[in-house]
Simulated assay, not measured.
Amino acid sequence: MSAPLQVSLPDQKLLDALAPTAGVEFYVWDFSGPAPAGRLDIVVPPYMRGPEVLAALESVDIGLVQSQSIGYDGVADVLPAGCVFANAAGVHETSTAELALGMMIASQRGMDDFVRNQATGTWDNSQRPSLADRRVLLVGYGGVGKAIEARLLPFETHVTRMASREREDSSGKIFGIDSLYEQLPLHDIAVVSVPLIEQTRQLVDAKFLAAMPDGALLVNVARGAVADTDALLAETSTGRLRAAVDVTDPEPLPVDHPLWSTPGVLITPHVGGASSAMFPRMVRLVQQQIGLMLEGKEPVNVVLGGAAE
């Protein structure tokens, strides 16, 4: 009889959803103390704790690190040698796309102003820009970008897709990032959902923002460091551009940062994936990884340390 699969989970809630499973021994480990075993076949780190917590794996024999996030910026710098790292593709795309769409509607239709007006009993029924008929540029066409597109099209928007390289699919052309400055002036809304890598760090800089037309809306559901905060503040504080951002740099945004009080800027506190949809999808992903390992098959979503690297 083979030894049971050793799986560590960051909290009791996830353990209760997964256990008991034949052939698997579970542990609860939130990385705050020593590892529960010298060998762990699957480790699920705590959510939103940052890559630095992975240093706790240094003295443990690890089969797979299964992240609860899509992004994995900074992980390669701290992941112990020999570890295989999988992201949570398939878990957060729907929720992040919902938030992106909600932020677009809120910004376009003035929901943030209406909330403030409600506190003072101000009746301002001036006309606002629609989402319908807007030209939307998706800068980033991975899982999140595709989920955003699927939700935008029923709202009768005109969507342009942009990825790292130009290509065609069944829906037509996907522009390459080399067309960025040709496309930005043609669009009313730019939605950024790229991963944070060296090439995308501060992609949304003064040049990017200057290329957007007056009154345009920037939506950032990527990572805070994808945008230059000072450049964003400079453009929005004049009222030339508007912004809806779920991520900031720094993060959390300091309480006295002027971006908080800039008219036309809507800020949510990095909650793109933080919805009721996350937990059951995370459970299904861990169940899938356990099933694959029990069958001797390769895990899915591997982004570091495996064949996908």
Rank of each mutant, 00 (worst) to 15 (best):
Y27S: 12
V303A: 11
P195Q: 07
Y47M: 14
V191Q: 12
V255K: 13
R242Q: 11
L292V: 11
L153V: 15
R165M: 07
D124V: 07
G291D: 13
S2F: 03
V65I: 00
A147G: 00
P213W: 02
V84C: 07
E295V: 05
L266F: 03
R135T: 05
G239P: 08
G121R: 11
Q108I: 02
A216D: 00
Y27A: 07
G38L: 09
S59L: 10
L152T: 00
R134C: 02
R242V: 05
V283Q: 07
E52K: 14
Y27F: 15
L137Q: 00
L266R: 08
P36D: 09
H158N: 13
E309V: 13
V144N: 08
V53K: 02
E295S: 15
S69V: 06
L196N: 04
T262R: 12
D169A: 01
E309H: 14
D77H: 11
L253E: 09
S179Y: 06
A3S: 11
M162G: 03
V192L: 10
V303I: 11
N87R: 03
A206K: 12
W260K: 05
G272N: 10
L15F: 06
R161C: 07
A163Y: 01
S193D: 08
G63A: 01
R49Q: 15
V265N: 01
T94V: 14
G273M: 02
A56N: 06
L5T: 02
K297L: 13
S95G: 15
A222F: 02
P185W: 02
A211M: 09
T236E: 05
S171D: 13
E198N: 15
E98S: 12
P10D: 06
N220D: 04
I267V: 13
P258Y: 01
D41R: 04
G102L: 09
M278E: 12
H92I: 13
I148K: 03
I42Q: 01
V144Y: 00
E309L: 14
E235V: 00
F175S: 12
A76D: 12
E52Q: 15
E98H: 14
S171V: 05
